[in-house]
Design a protein around this nucleic acid. Structure first.
Lengths: 192, 192
DNA sequence: CCACTGGCCGTTTTCGGACCCGGTCCCCGG
DNA sequence: CCGGGGACCGGGTCCGAAAACGGCCAGTGG
């Protein structure tokens, strides 16, 4: 049972992409395994099925209609066109929003993990994998950016801005600016 | 903070036992880690704490009183004298009883796993680790023994005994006897 | 002659390897 | 003290290969 693919997605291309778990093809096609009647995304982490047992579909719906059920590892049914890693991604997304709202300025990473219903170790792993940075790094970046905006757009004293941006002390506020811009906060006021 | 141990359990012995995760010492003493205020059994699977950070207690209660909380991996508070790996071990026990009642004569290993609330793969792992045999092997042994008893103690025709003992076909009944005793079922009748 | 045996064969189940997820410790460095 | 990161483990999800299954049926021997 062969299926015609959208423009340049022939059988051989799909097979190469799936064996390489190529993320670039995620969402562009789906792989059905005849022996198990299960279909997967190209990035599925399980050992790839042998080529003679697979068949390709242009969409998850097509695979469902052909009698395949979605794989429980890669969750192909929740990936219509784009990745949409909703499971774990929404956890990172929720964490991001909380950090953006200043959560980590008043609470610890462990508290954040508690609020999300997972362990701190796992929260760290999720951030490294999906955001490329640790939670505290994200929080630090946010504080710097918030402070920079206040310096540029308001006339508040720097010591007030430090606390308004979420820093716990003026000392850390100054340190952070030196680390990021190489010069103290006041230098941005002078040349404004 | 040093503690006096029962007769021959000096500090050095405890330290050696804990580093070796020696099962023989399980229940005889408990290890408290100063840096985390957590106490463990000697067999705890976690990476052992360094010796300068540990202190030993003769009982879990002593550790509690000293302000330590029980480790969540080895569950020291539920291990007065014996292992009490109750979590996983009782699952195997329940499975064994079900098999003994003929569950696997009418249902598959997957059904058994469902009934126990775990995956079939994991059930297999538990059996190999704690029973030294697979679920279907246990079921096969039970069938053979049940059949042998019926042959010895009744006059039922062999074909009836096959089904009464839990075999699904006479064919397999014969195979099982050949594999176990090297000769067909009827040979046990003749020399009765 | 008839219950029992065992070869054959397509189908279904079980096994065991590989991988991943999330939790729980520990140590170290800032 | 807190956050990062290493190590281990329980448990879950796949896959391919191998074993078990069960129906069919030709022998066979008491």
């Amino acid at each position: 049972m062969l299926h015609v693919m959208p423009p340049p997605l022939d059988q051989a291309t799909c097979d190469r992409a799936r064996l390489a778990r190529d993320r670039a093809f995620d969402g562009l096609f789906f792989t059905g395994v005849r022996t198990t009647r299960i279909y997967c995304r190209p990035v599925c982490p399980v050992r790839p099925a042998r080529s003679e047992n697979v068949v390709f579909f242009p969409s998850a719906a097509a695979a469902e209609r052909a009698g395949f059920r979605p794989c429980l590892r890669c969750r192909p049914e929740t990936a219509p066109g784009s990745p949409a890693w909703n499971g774990t991604r929404s956890t990172v997304g929720r964490a991001m929003r909380l950090i953006e709202d200043g959560f980590l300025d008043r609470a610890s990473v462990s508290d954040l993990a508690d609020k999300l219903g997972i362990g701190p170790r796992h929260l760290l792993r999720l951030f490294l994998r999906h955001a490329g940075a640790t939670p505290s790094e994200v929080a630090a970046t946010r504080r710097i950016q918030a402070a920079k905006r206040l310096i540029d757009r308001t006339k508040q004293p720097l010591s007030e801005i430090a606390f308004a941006a979420g820093f716990g002390s003026v000392r850390r506020f100054n340190d952070a600016f030196r680390a990021t811009y190489g010069r103290p906060p006041s230098s941005f006021r002078k040349r404004g």
